[in-house]
Design a protein around this nucleic acid. Structure first.
Lengths: 225, 225
DNA sequence: GGCATCCTCCATAAATCCATGGATTATTGT
DNA sequence: ACAATAATCCATGGATTTATGGAGGATGCC
């Protein structure tokens, strides 16, 4: 193999790796990955959830599919997208972690989006201990479909938009541990603010379903509260 | 916070993550990261090693720096770039792993570059066992600077370009375990081919220095053979 | 100070990416 | 077969990215 051929095949290999990098190079695509990490969804549902034009969403999903990050399943007239594997979710999570650790803009953007929150958090280990002790109720504030696709065992499902109306479904004497999609999911922040405003004791889980699943903790599916 | 403001700050956060993704979105930048994972280097050295125009290399390095993936250190007239942390190397390694697992083009590009190689490989654990048993010699075929920046304890350094001339420095009775930068580093493949052509028993380590370091195995620095 | 070296900054042209609207394909129901 | 729905494909204009020369800034040596 000549030197030229060799460097051409080398470029081809690195460009192939870069193709996966490119899939991570758009905020909108990362938003889609974030949603897909919660479970499979149709194109239309993804577009709505991410606030995208259908065509645009479809195009981004094609890019993700090209990179092998997602697979599709046809069901009648709908096409369901899902992550191609846990390693993809892992890559996504690590990207966010590295970005937060090394990129100055992230902590600021994070606080602006989530709201600066000096309130306490609970780690996964602490949550498990307190659930075992029975002195907390675990609340999942994601949309119902995501809860059904997989949730922390024993968690109650009340989507954050319904929380104000359904707050009386929660026991008054227990502290409420709230979680949603992951470390940067705003729903749990909003829910904790709402609950404490109403005089409840509420605390956020450190992160969310994404990290829970990646750490291989048990996950329940589909039984509604 | 209005819904509009909220979705704007959300976009800002995801775009910040995407900025890190963009840093991974060019084959040339990945090549630079691959080199930097072996130790710090000057701009000029990186440009030469990656086959890039100096200006182009500098621009790519600025992009990596913007993403916080690398830091710089001035020493007289030279500027040394290095990875900002092991988490960056980890992200790089995971990107390659996910790409290989899910992207059809990668295995083909890999074989075209490295040469299809049905020959046996040794895992890190097996290598340690055989080193302890004393029946192998470990050979580092990377450039000397990289060896000096960190190598597997006990390894001998002979850069692959010098191997043909210096083959007699290797004991004839022991099997030779060859490694270089990482899983996709071509130097070890070339070296094994050269050694077996000359009648030596040679085998490749599974991966290379990158994975060795990330798995937190001991690393020696700077003492030449 | 004068000069060489190493690197970054700037301007530019080519290539690529992104969002969007309209056309097209695939599937289901009537 | 026809209409309706879900999604992809295609063309387009605008924004970004990339590679590359040339100018400019910092440092060290004489």
């Amino acid at each position: 193999m000549s030197e030229n051929t060799k460097s051409a095949t080398k470029a081809r290999l690195y460009d192939a790796f870069a193709a996966s990098g490119k899939a991570l190079a758009s905020g909108k695509r990362l938003e889609l990955l974030d949603l897909l990490a919660q479970g499979e969804r149709t194109v239309d549902a993804l577009a709505k959830a991410a606030g995208l034009n259908l065509t645009t969403a479809s195009a981004h999903l094609q890019t993700l599919k090209q990179a092998g990050f997602v697979t599709t399943r046809r069901e009648g007239v709908r096409i369901h997208y899902r992550l191609a594997g846990d390693d993809v979710a892992q890559l996504f999570a690590l990207l966010r972690k590295v970005a937060e650790a090394h990129q100055a803009a992230v902590p600021a953007a994070r606080d602006a989006y989530l709201g600066e929150d000096t309130a306490a958090e609970l780690s996964r280990a602490e949550l498990r201990a307190r659930v075992a002790a029975g002195d907390v109720v675990v609340l999942d504030v994601r949309p119902v479909e995501e809860y059904q696709a997989g949730h922390i065992p024993g968690a109650v499902s009340i989507p954050v938009e319904e929380l104000a109306d359904r707050i009386n479904e929660l026991p008054e004497d227990l502290e409420i541990v709230v979680y949603c999609r992951g470390e940067y999911c705003v729903l749990a922040y909003d829910a904790v603010r709402l609950l404490t405003d109403r005089g409840r004791r509420a605390i956020r889980l450190n992160d969310g379903m994404l990290e829970w699943r990646l750490s291989e903790l048990p996950v329940d599916a589909s039984n509604l509260t």
